[in-house]
Design a binder for these strands. Structure first.
Lengths: 147, 147
DNA sequence: CTTATATAAGAGCATATGCCCTTATTTATG
DNA sequence: CATAAATAAGGGCATATGCTCTTATATAAG
């Protein structure tokens, strides 16, 4: 059965936000047993990327297209659980680098299995081809100029 | 200049969430002078639809693809500002219907002008054709089965 | 060297989102 | 009719998101 109807919104933003509510449910449900929300999982995944140096708060917020203060907020539960830690930069006293702990890496790999199931469910729901095309379009969107 | 890079995420949900952060900025910035966030604007707009009866909380949450409790939370600032009001249903004592006040309608039409500018800016940013196709795809997504 | 400017990050505030549990009311069951 | 099951909504909790202002540090200007 389809969801109840209402005239389709002309607002690009409203539709996008509806979609994120709808899709986040799938992922959060699958990840539930890990105690991670989708945002937290993505954050850990970003930190697991191989880089010359761990990212600074600023860099990380750029990668994630996320406000610096939001990143700060979102790190707090992960810090509390010991999944990440902050390390003062040796060269610049203002800068903190965000590091994935061993515990964080373990939690991430625990999450990856469930995440894959969520990916599959999403693909089943809208079709893999559409899923990939949509993701690519949205990815492009996140790489545009900040106004 | 493009945003900093990171390997493109394979996660459909993460990319969608990034996009919503990116796009909401445009709309929230335009709407700023009204004191409305995008979600609030969308809520008022949904309430301005012509219907036989004002929607109940449950109906409204379905239209918006939003958890009932989330809707309750999101209504609070609007109630406080007198832009909407709740009316006990005459037939069913459990049910409350959500009503757009005259003040709310005025605020909505104030917002609509700014919203149109946001729409234009968004279209300018990614191209109108892509914008419409993307919105249609996302709209379909919001109408799929709840798992 | 001293001061002004710029930058990195945090603090506090407000809204956004959804979960679980509870309460009130309605409907179904016996 | 009395009771059980279902439904509508709210309360409380935790995270998600971004704004503004502040603080600490670094760099540029003089």
């Amino acid at each position: 059965m389809l969801n109840h109807t209402s005239p389709p919104s002309p607002c690009y933003c409203a539709v996008l936000r509806k979609a994120v509510r709808r899709v986040s449910l799938i992922y959060d449900t699958h990840l539930k047993s890990t105690g991670l929300k989708t945002t937290q999982f993505s954050l850990l995944a970003e930190l697991s990327q191989d880089r010359p140096q761990p990212p600074t708060m600023n860099q990380l917020s750029e990668y994630l297209v996320m406000d610096r203060s939001t990143l700060g907020h979102n790190l707090r539960p992960l810090l509390r659980r010991g999944l990440v830690l902050l390390q003062q930069d040796t060269d610049d006293g203002r800068t903190r680098r965000v590091i994935l702990t061993a515990k964080g890496a373990a939690k991430l790999s625990e999450g990856r299995r469930l995440w894959q199931a969520a990916q599959k469910e999403y693909e089943r729901t809208i079709g893999k081809d559409v899923a990939v095309k949509l993701r690519n379009a949205l990815h492009d969107l996140t790489r545009l100029d900040v106004p």
